[in-house]
Simulated scan of single mutants.
Amino acid sequence: MEGLFLPLLLMLVVAIPLVMGTRKQKRMMAQQQELQNSLAPGDRVMTTSGLYATVADASDETTIDLEIADGVVTTWLRQGVREKINPVVDDEDSTDEDDTALVEDSSLAEIDDKETETAKAAQVAPPLEHGKK
């Protein structure tokens, strides 16, 4: 009995991760299938190649028409759609009057400009020098 304990334990140690990985893969495939079946015209999507587009026609079972620019519609396999993207809402309702009301004093505007320039300068990374040691 003791001679079988170690081989059984080793088999369990190997089998458990395999079973768990298979379950995770099946769950991911089910989610992807659900996404592809739920696509409707007007949805914003991202393809597996990183292209953002709007669904133009989703009536075919295997392909989907994506509008990548105004008037430019391309046909893709449904499996090429990676995920739905929530549309970004731009707040264009702000007016110049609101901006000038916030910064009435010219000294405040100069301080703000200096802070903006400093922030822009801090975001620039130094160039990489490949091959030098």
Rank of each mutant, 00 (worst) to 15 (best):
L128E: 14
L12G: 02
P7T: 03
R44I: 09
E2Q: 06
D113F: 09
D57H: 03
S107G: 05
E129K: 15
D93L: 04
A69Y: 02
A40Q: 15
E2D: 13
T75C: 06
K84P: 04
G131H: 14
T47Y: 08
S49N: 07
D105A: 11
T22E: 11
T48P: 01
P41F: 12
T74I: 14
S94P: 01
E83A: 13
L10P: 00
I16D: 02
T54D: 08
D65Y: 08
A125V: 13
P126Q: 06
L18M: 07
M46Q: 11
G3H: 04
T100A: 06
L6S: 01
K120E: 13
A30M: 04
T22A: 11
T62C: 03
D99M: 10
A125S: 15
S49M: 09
E110Q: 11
P7H: 05
N86H: 11
D96G: 11
E117I: 05
L102M: 14
D65F: 07
R23V: 03
S38F: 04
Q31S: 05
S59Q: 09
D99F: 08
T95Y: 04
P7C: 00
V45A: 08
E34H: 08
V88E: 08
V72Y: 06
A121S: 13
V88H: 08
S49G: 09
T47D: 05
V45K: 04
T100P: 07
L66C: 05
D65R: 09
S106T: 12
T95C: 00
T54L: 15
T74Q: 13
T62I: 05
I16C: 04
G3N: 10
K133Q: 09
V13C: 00
